[in-house]
Amino acid sequence: MRAQLEAVIVSVEIAPAHDGAAELLVRLRHPNGGEETVSIDAEIGFRLMRNCGASDLAGLAGQSWRRMMNE
């Protein structure tokens, strides 16, 4: 079984950004078991959904965080 080598999205919520836009609050789990929460804005959020092939937030759970990068 291949070990998990990169951070994985655990859950995603919609949250308010400092500038009044809606953003995503992404809960990540790192390979060492540590978890953290990261906020991402609309541009990156929609890119993440597209790169993950997710039609909504539910489709992001379990995906690699690396997919946030352009693909």
Partner: peptide, 17 residues
């Protein structure tokens, strides 16, 4: 903090739909 949006620009407010 409030969230504001219009349909002129994509907003993550609708990201569950």
């Amino acid at each position: 903090i409030d969230i504001s949006f219009s349909l002129l620009r994509p907003s993550l407010f609708f990201a569950r739909l």
